[in-house]
Design a protein around this nucleic acid. Structure first.
Length: 462
RNA sequence: GUCCCCAUCGUCUAGAGGCCUAGGACACCUCCCUUUCACGGAGGCGACCCGGGUUCGAAUCCCGGUGGGGACGCCA
């Protein structure tokens, strides 16, 4: 059997981290099995769906490199087909019109809640053999409901959670078409998963409760039942549920914040899934290893520190050339324009191992291209009056020295010897004068990149 | 309330009855490297939710608690 998976977001917001992981797992499953990954936009909620959200989802997937083999399909463009299927169901008796009004239903729900019962439709308009239906009201346009079986249980072997059984008595007759005739989510999903030949439905576990209803409809339609895999949710760093109000951000925010897609992908892969002790791996490797058996069924908390660690890894691994354009852009955002010297790729190479994000990297090298911002605490500590003569001597030496890290290092050593100091006694003030702060890579390397003229100018300024 | 799901270090996880005095990773701490900060290297701290059972033997199986989460829309 050819594997066909899908990612089916509703375009009511950006692609967040949970959606991204769901997409990633679906994508990887299809890749692993040489199958097809399908993108389907579930935009039947006309009031909340927006073209901007569609674009945001597409952008997010593109940034992550989650390419789809088919789609994007839009449910709004498949209305005719859904309506056809509804007509068929009406004819064969697996669906029926319901004239209960919204207020009637609301009252019913409140009453059931008050009686500590599970709120559900009371079956008022459900046709049964020998049952006399109420007179059809003239002022109400009916909805269409699915005639769910009342006996027995729905069972499926969830690929993540194992066997799940839900009694039909727990289910009620759900609405499959609204009063205006438009089909609802649970119904569209069924038709689409069926007609798109989806073999594995991989989705968030907030859909577990929809699954038995969908299986029943699939059965009513005589469709093959796909396998289901319900992924647990991702919690925020504080263990709280992610929501728009609380911590849920677009994957594009990670781009903005200086994360590499490789790092985000690698991080997400290990959130709820594992392959022994493997922590760092490419997407190519992930697709080979990925399976549904090693997915954890409990919710996972998002941990920025680990993401940072992975991001640092991928930044270190990236070539300076590949980061060049990105870093230039990020410097521009800091109002720093890159000049020809110091050579940006060389600077990136020297600094990339110390940055957790590309933003940090850009910020850390800004002083090569603009006047350093003096850290007053560091200045007070290191730029002492006593050290001035030694620095002056060094400045003289530097005018003539061969401008290589090693020669510069020797020059500093000469001064150290002459004044009988420890190396840091000279290196630290130098560092602060040149960079404004007390931490940097090896000072001779920094000086070499900065250039003789600029180094001398910055020393003279103090 | 009803139904469903979940439960190993602070966090992500390994673990399919004996390989478990519970392994790895992030974070944290110490030391080494060192020119400061990082990187890197070596150590350390640190967990099987509770109670019963099954078994020669349970983190692993069963039952019951407790705790957390989800669903219960003419939203998706």
């Amino acid at each position: 059997m050819i594997v066909r998976t899908r990612f089916a977001p509703s375009p009511t917001g950006f692609l967040h981290i949970g959606g991204a992981r769901t997409a990633l797992f679906s994508w990887a499953y299809a890749k692993k099995h040489g199958g097809a990954f399908i993108l389907r936009i579930e935009d039947t909620d006309v009031a909340r769906s927006t073209p901007e959200a569609v674009q945001a989802i597409l952008d997010g997937m593109q940034w992550l490199g989650l390419d789809y083999d088919e789609g994007p399909f839009y449910q709004m463009q498949r209305m005719d087909r859904y309506k056809q299927v509804i007509q068929t169901m009406l004819q064969q008796g697996s669906a029926y019109y319901c004239y209960s009004s919204k207020t009637e239903l609301d009252t019913l729900r409140e009453q059931q809640m008050a009686d500590k019962q599970k709120p559900r439709y009371d079956g008022k308009w459900r046709p049964e053999a020998g049952k006399v239906l109420p007179a059809i009201p003239t002022d109400i346009s009916p909805v269409i409901r699915f005639k769910n079986p009342q006996d027995g249980v729905v069972v499926w072997d969830d690929l993540v959670k194992g066997r799940i059984e839900i009694a039909n008595s727990e289910l009620d007759d759900l609405i499959i078409a609204r009063a205006d005739g438009t089909p609802t989510y649970n119904f569209c999903v069924v038709v689409d998963d069926w007609e798109m030949g989806i073999t594995q439905v991989i989705r968030g576990d907030d859909h577990v409760n929809n699954t038995p209803r969908q299986i029943n409809m699939l059965k009513a339609l005589g469709a093959k039942i796909p396998q289901y895999a319900h992924l647990s949710m991702i919690l925020g760093g504080d263990g709280q549920k992610l929501s728009k109000r609380h911590g849920a951000v677009s994957v594009m925010q990670y781009d903005e914040d200086g994360y590499l897609p490789e790092a985000v992908l690698n991080y997400l892969s290990r959130l709820g899934w594992s392959h022994g002790d493997e922590e760092v791996f490419s997407m190519h490797q992930f697709c080979e290893w990925f399976d549904l058996d090693h997915i954890t069924s409990s919710a996972a908390q998002f941990n920025t520190e680990k993401l940072n660690w992975l991001n640092n890894h991928y930044i270190k691994q990236a070539s300076a050339e590949s980061l060049l354009g990105d870093i230039t852009k990020r410097l521009a955002k800091l109002n720093v324009s890159v000049s020809e010297t110091p050579n940006l790729p060389a600077v990136i190479d020297l600094y990339k191992e110390r940055a957790n994000t590309l933003n940090e990297l850009a910020a850390s090298i800004a002083y090569f291209y603009q006047k350093p911002i003096m850290d007053l605490v560091a200045a007070e500590k290191h730029l002492t009056v006593e050290i001035k003569p030694a620095i002056a001597t060094l400045a003289d030496l530097l005018k003539a020295v061969d401008w290589q890290a090693e020669a510069i290092h020797h020059a500093i050593n000469e001064v150290v010897t002459q004044y009988q100091l420890k190396f840091p006694k000279v290196a630290m003030p130098l560092r602060v004068m040149l960079t404004g702060i007390a931490q940097s890579p090896s000072i001779d390397q920094v000086m070499k990149l900065m250039g003789r003229e600029e180094v001398l100018a910055r020393i003279t300024n103090h």
